[in-house]
C-alpha cells in the first residue's frame, strides 16, 4: 500500500475537484436559464432573431414597454393589489390562529392542527370553478377582491402553520417576564411577542405575497377583464412575439428574485433548514 503521504493527497484533491465541479454544475443548472431569460427579455429583436448571437449584446427596454402597453401594466397593478389584500386577509385571520396553536394547550388541538396541515395540501385550485357561480351571485366575479378571497383560502393554512412555528420559537420565558412585570396577555403579545417575531413574520408575509403573485389557475378562472399578471400572460401574452414573453417572465420573477435576496435567511429557516 502506498504511503498516505503520497497517494492520499492526490485522491483527496481529485475528489475535491470533482466535487467542486458538481457544485458548480448544480448552480449553473439553476442560474443559467434565469440569466438567459433575463438577457433575452432585454435584447433587441435583431440580436434575438440572429442565430449567431447566442448571448445578446444589444439591450433595450422596448420589450418591457411593449408588454406594459399591451396591458401588463394594469395586470401588474392588479397582481400587486390582489397580493397585498391576500397578505392582509390571511394574516388577520391566520395570525391569531397561529398564536393559539403556538401558545395554548387545548382540547382538539392535535386534530385541528392535522386538519390545517391537510388543508395546506388540499388542491385549492379546484375551489375556483364552483366559486364562479357564487361570485356571480355576489357580484364578485371578475373582481380583484374575489381573487384575493380565493387566494386567502390558499394562503391561510400556510400562514397559520408558519406563524405558529415562528411564535413557538419565541421563548415562553420572555412572555412570562412580561406577565411578571404587569402586562396582560394582549399587551404581552403586542409589546414582546410580536416585535420579536417581526423578522420571521415579515418573511412569511413576503412569501404569502409571492404565493398570490404566482397563482394563475384561480386568477384565470375568476377574472375576465381584471386579469392578474399570470392570468394576463396565460390568456394574452402567449400570442405575442417571443421576446415579449421573456419580458413577461422577467416581470413575473422580479419580486421572487428580490425576495430570495432580502429574505434568503428566513426562506431557508421557513422550511426547517438550519444553516450552520
Amino acid at each position: 500500500m502506498p504511503g498516505p503521504g503520497e497517494s492520499a493527497p492526490i485522491r483527496y484533491y481529485l475528489f475535491k475537484i470533482v466535487f467542486a465541479g458538481i457544485v458548480i454544475l448544480s448552480c449553473t443548472w439553476i442560474l443559467l436559464p434565469i440569466i438567459i431569460s433575463i438577457l433575452y427579455a432585454f435584447s433587441t429583436p435583431q440580436d434575438f432573431y440572429n442565430p449567431k448571437e447566442v448571448i445578446p449584446l444589444h439591450f433595450t427596454l422596448s420589450n418591457i414597454q411593449k408588454l406594459l402597453a399591451l396591458g401588463a401594466a394594469r395586470a401588474t397593478m392588479n397582481s400587486i393589489i390582489v397580493a397585498i389584500m391576500t397578505v392582509i386577509f390571511s394574516f388577520i385571520l391566520g395570525l391569531p390562529a397561529g398564536y393559539a396553536f403556538a401558545r395554548f394547550a387545548f382540547k382538539g388541538k392535535d386534530s385541528l392542527k392535522l386538519l390545517i396541515i391537510g388543508l395546506r395540501m388540499f388542491p385549492m385550485l379546484v375551489i375556483a370553478i364552483p366559486l364562479v357561480t357564487l361570485y356571480i351571485r355576489l357580484g364578485l366575479n371578475d373582481t380583484l377582491l374575489g381573487v384575493a378571497l380565493a387566494h386567502t383560502t390558499m394562503a391561510l393554512p400556510f400562514v397559520i402553520l408558519i406563524t405558529s412555528s415562528i411564535f413557538v420559537s419565541v421563548p415562553v420565558e420572555l412572555e412570562e417576564a412580561g406577565y411578571v412585570f404587569g402586562l396582560d396577555r394582549k399587551q404581552t403579545f403586542f409589546r414582546i411577542t410580536l416585535p420579536l417575531s417581526l423578522p420571521g413574520l415579515t418573511a412569511a408575509a413576503i412569501f404569502t405575497f409571492i404565493m398570490s403573485w404566482n397563482e394563475v389557475f384561480m386568477a384565470a378562472v375568476l377574472t375576465l377583464t381584471n386579469r392578474t399578471l399570470p392570468a394576463f400572460i396565460l390568456t394574452s401574452a402567449m400570442a405575442a412575439p417571443d421576446i415579449i414573453k421573456f419580458a413577461a417572465s422577467f416581470i413575473m420573477i422580479l419580486p421572487a428574485l428580490i425576495f430570495v435576496f432580502i429574505a434568503r435567511k428566513y426562506l431557508v429557516s421557513m422550511w426547517g433548514i438550519t444553516v450552520k
Binding site: 404566482n214 397563482e215 420573477i253 421572487a256
Partner: peptide, 13 residues
C-alpha cells in the same frame, strides 16, 4: 419562489 408560468417561459427562452 418562481411560478410555474414564469418557469415555463424561462425554459421557453
Amino acid at each position: 419562489t418562481i411560478s410555474d408560468v414564469a418557469g415555463g417561459l424561462i425554459w421557453y427562452s
